[in-house]
Design a protein around this nucleic acid. Structure first.
Lengths: 337, 337
DNA sequence: CGTTAGCACTCGTCATGTCTAAGTGCTAAC
DNA sequence: GTTAGCACTTAGACATGACGAGTGCTAACG
């Protein structure tokens, strides 16, 4: 019983099952792939694969389907990267190049990726670890209510209304603004927490309280932009493959809606700095995704933000991985290194 | 055969069907509602209702279920408004009052509404017909790239990167900014298109070109905020009631994702200035929503923006309508008249 | 004329049983 | 290590029949 052939058998099972959605038997296997041996031999190999927990039979007399572990082995060792078609490459390029601001780029990205893969696409807002403060704006909405706007040099804008706890005049606020701006302009967002106390300390005692509140607000804005938001598209694709989620797509939709879950998942994946990472079925930390797989990779500055695709474990991994990787590359190119 | 009783029968059918999800027969009807007549009489009434197209029988020997037309009559004439429980009122109040900015308010609103109704909730961003320019900011990203930020007094912030077509210094840009700001501060967004040309004309000829580009950008920002965005929550609720969508929830998810579809639908509904509007099944202009109903109402300034709920035609209309109305009221109160 | 009782009729549903095709595991031979 | 052959298991398709829910109709009643 040769090891290489066993892997070949596993690969054939995965490919056929992904293609047909049906358990694949030994006979069908020798017909569709010229493996050079008989079905009986394949049966022996399959029994071995089952012992190793790589495939399983839904019932006594059905074909086999891959387990999570089987998919894992397939992804890690067997599958070859499938290059995108010329048309697909062009589609990515033309679609992403006409975009205006960051929101728009991300919006288009997920739409594109979900169409490309027929699955759900998600993209996380870029981390701002290297982003710097470009501008700060305070706008007086009411005597104590200040709209605080933080603009990063990546083009990202975050705003929030803050209660400063004391009445401020327009002039006082303008003074605070120029003081904050002068000290903080160019500061990396990641260093903001350390930089803020000094600015507050430099303010006149009478306005210390307000300055403190504003500083807290800015801190929150900087960290809230860090990795807390995401965009997605293609949830309708879940319904079409509703055969693939025996239970129901409910839990999956819940996970997607609870952005926290997805964001944590994305950030826990992809330790691998270069290349696409895959999280398969029960490997996912969230129970609702026990029958789903996530294919993701980093993009942008330091590859710290993630873009990815979510679909059933029975997924065409090579193609999906190729699409995710290609999109991430174009995305990085557009947003700068 | 008395007309009032016939309506009573229709009402009983709708209520029982909504409650049990199963076709309701004449016998069950006389048992659960004390109508004072026998099942044979009810049968006659039901036959009449069927002739009028208000109810229908899935097959020869099953009970009846309401048609779209039946639901319509129920909503328009029969149903009584069901007041929310004290606990629900309190939940609305406490949940919505702690919110920070507009995004946050809307986000909380849809979450709340979807939990309250166990359905999908959507809310449209408020129109800015009465909103005014609070602040304008230009930030130089590159010699020709300007990040343009428009802040409305509602707290809404919109931004976009604009190519001004000529190189600008920081000082020149600051000059443009103060000129724009001085002329436009306090201008209603709806009047921006008329007001912009004058500002451009007042600029020095050397900067006319850039000013023109910036004006176009501001115009686009103002109109893009008008009614083009929406927030939703509770899509997972669709999956739970997947019995209610015989075909599949796919088309419904598609409609929700194609925000354009929902936005047009929302704006076409609710001509009725006060009160909740309902669009039932095939009344919806979009085919994918043939088995869905939308319950919506206006809120905020002039009740021009919409908030609503989407669910299966087999929906508890009185309760849903009450929830939508209550939420819209609190929303209006928070955002001002 | 509206209401009622009774009854024949229609169908969907469920339980039961049978048959077939697919696929396996095992053994013995190569 | 590979193969052929065979006994065995089982899901799924199909037919059958009992059952029950529910209707429509007719004739009688007040």
């Amino acid at each position: 019983m040769s090891e290489p052939r066993k892997l070949e058998v596993l690969r054939a099972i995965v490919e056929d099952y992904v293609h047909s959605r049906e358990p694949v038997g030994s006979k069908a296997l020798v017909e569709r792939h010229h493996l050079g041996v008989s079905s009986a031999t394949i049966r022996n190999d399959m029994a071995a694969l089952e012992d190793e927990g790589l495939i399983t039979a839904p019932h006594t007399s059905a074909g086999r389907i891959p387990t999570d572990k089987g998919y894992r082995l397939f992804v890690d060792q067997i599958s070859a990267v499938k290059p995108l078609s010329q048309a697909e490459r062009r589609a990515i390029q033309t679609l992403l190049e006409g975009s205006e601001d960051l929101d728009d780029v991300l919006e288009r990205t997920v739409r594109l990726l979900s169409q490309l893969t027929n699955q759900v696409a998600v993209v996380q807002y870029p981390h701002l670890s290297r982003a710097m403060v470009r501008h700060i704006e305070f706008v007086l909405l009411a005597p104590r209510q200040v709209l605080t706007v933080l603009i990063a040099d990546t083009g990202k804008v975050e705003q929030r209304v803050i209660d400063v706890g004391q009445e401020l005049s327009d002039e006082a606020l303008a003074g605070l603004r120029s003081r904050f701006l002068k000290s903080l302009s160019g500061t990396p967002l990641s260093l903001l927490p350390q930089a803020l106390p000094a600015v507050v300390a430099s303010c006149e005692p009478a306005r210390r309280h307000a300055a403190q509140a504003l500083a807290r607000g800015l801190d929150a804005l900087a960290s809230s932009t860090r990795e807390e938001r995401m965009v997605m598209a293609g949830t309708a694709n879940l319904a079409r493959s509703n055969v693939d989620f025996p239970l129901s797509i409910g839990p999956v939709l819940e996970a997607l809606e609870e952005q926290v879950v997805m964001l944590r998942l994305l950030s826990e994946m992809a330790q691998d700095p270069r290349g696409v990472t895959v999280s398969i079925g029960r490997e996912n930390p969230y129970d609702g995704l026990a029958e789903a797989s996530v294919v993701a990779t980093g993009y942008g500055p330091g590859s710290s933000a993630k873009v990815g695709v979510l679909g059933p474990t029975r997924m065409d991994y090579p193609t999906t991985m190729a699409a995710v990787r290609a999109v991430a590359r174009y995305l990085s190119r557009i947003l700068g290194p």
